[in-house]
Design a protein around this nucleic acid. Structure first.
Lengths: 213, 213
DNA sequence: CAAACATCTGAACGTTGGTTCACTTCTTGT
DNA sequence: ACAAGAAGTGAACCAACGTTCAGATGTTTG
């Protein structure tokens, strides 16, 4: 016997795997999933393309994992707020505002996660995570409905509506063309405007008693 | 001189072009844009692949035209209703219901138009048509706001929210897996349920005075 | 019918980008 | 140090499709 997987080795493996994911995320955050190619990624990491396959079965798997980890963070942040303190309406308002703010602060990544056309394997993740957002809203809606803070007959459907409304209202302002316009000094909507309108929209839509801050 | 483009020829050209578009639409309606390949399409039409290029510069152009014509029909139908008779809230309700019903009645095509991952050139069209829907809603919102039927401060943003809510709430139930579930006899949401919930959602969201039928 | 020219054909080509694999370079345990 | 075997390399390979083009087939006019 002359070789065995030692702890040190497994550590380095784990670290490299993470480094690959980090580089991949950078790439996506910079130029969307379109710019995530195996050759370019390997180059970024400083390894050969073949080595990527020691850590991921295929590009699809890798891309899906990048998507999942980035989206997972968002779901977590949203969960934190929606399950936090305060009455349901306040929590909903906070959740929406936070989501918009986070998306705005890393618009390019947000656009890639929300709207960029991607290969099927990644798109599956998108559907999955949209469901996860929906699940969180659904929970809150049921709680709110039970205590009379909201009026919703079909929490699942309404939750999907919320997810759609939030995503769509942000896609426009986050899209590359819109951002280019902003940087060129042309007028365009600002975060506060979208965020306020969106929040009011969501609160009203679920039958919350009155506008919340 | 021994040949000139005669009216009969141009007619046949026009007809063939239309036949190509029809076949392409069938294909998309059946298996989404993923199943729209030049070879398969040429086969459907009964011509050679090369002949397709006598009518369309590229696949992207062809696909975009298919998308546009299908979406154009929907925009038209929506415009009809939103600009029709009745107070703004009633028209909004009708528009939403009609949109849902139409999508439901050709679910596969609707899914392809709303949510299927597609090549960039087609996705551009999607963005464009989403804007068109938004524009229609925006118009109605402004009219409604002016006469006090709605309470919307940012019609453009709210219009996007409506488009997103409608699309997203339908994507789930229209998606291939959901439909497979329905056909397998497993329980799933029905059109009436989604349509009602969605309509209520939209009316409340724009601050309409009270639920409309 | 025959010249002149458009249109059609479909196998071959090109491009893009993921994936492989024979070979080299490390690590580890004795 | 050295054997045993894992990990790394990167050019070649491959698959999938859109696109092309030289030759065959139609169509029109005199």
């Amino acid at each position: 016997m002359a070789y065995r997987t030692t702890p040190a080795r497994m550590d380095r493996d784990e670290q490299l795997r993470q480094r690959i994911l980090d580089c991949a995320l950078s790439r996506v955050a910079g130029g969307g999933f379109a710019s995530l190619t195996m050759v370019a990624l390997a180059d970024d990491v400083g390894i050969a393309t073949g080595s990527l396959y020691r850590h991921f079965h295929s590009k699809g798997e890798l891309a899906a994992e990048v998507f999942a980890s980035a989206s997972g963070r968002e779901v977590e942040a949203l969960r934190e707020v929606l399950r936090g303190d305060g009455d349901p309406a306040t929590r909903l308002a906070r959740g929406v505002r936070q989501f918009a703010a986070r998306a705005w602060s890393s618009r390019s990544l947000a656009f890639a996660l929300i709207a960029e056309p991607v290969e099927a394997e990644v798109d599956e993740q998108r559907l999955l995570y949209r469901e996860a957002y929906g699940e969180l809203f659904c929970e809150l809606l049921e709680e709110g409905a039970a205590q009379g803070a909201f009026q919703v007959a079909q929490p699942r459907v309404i939750a999907a509506c919320l997810v759609g409304a939030i995503a769509e209202s942000l896609v426009g302002p986050l899209s590359p063309p819109a951002w280019a316009a902003r940087e060129a000094g042309r007028p365009s909507v600002e975060l506060a405007v979208v965020s306020d309108a969106l929040t009011t929209f969501c609160l009203r839509a679920v039958g919350a008693k009155e506008p919340h801050p």
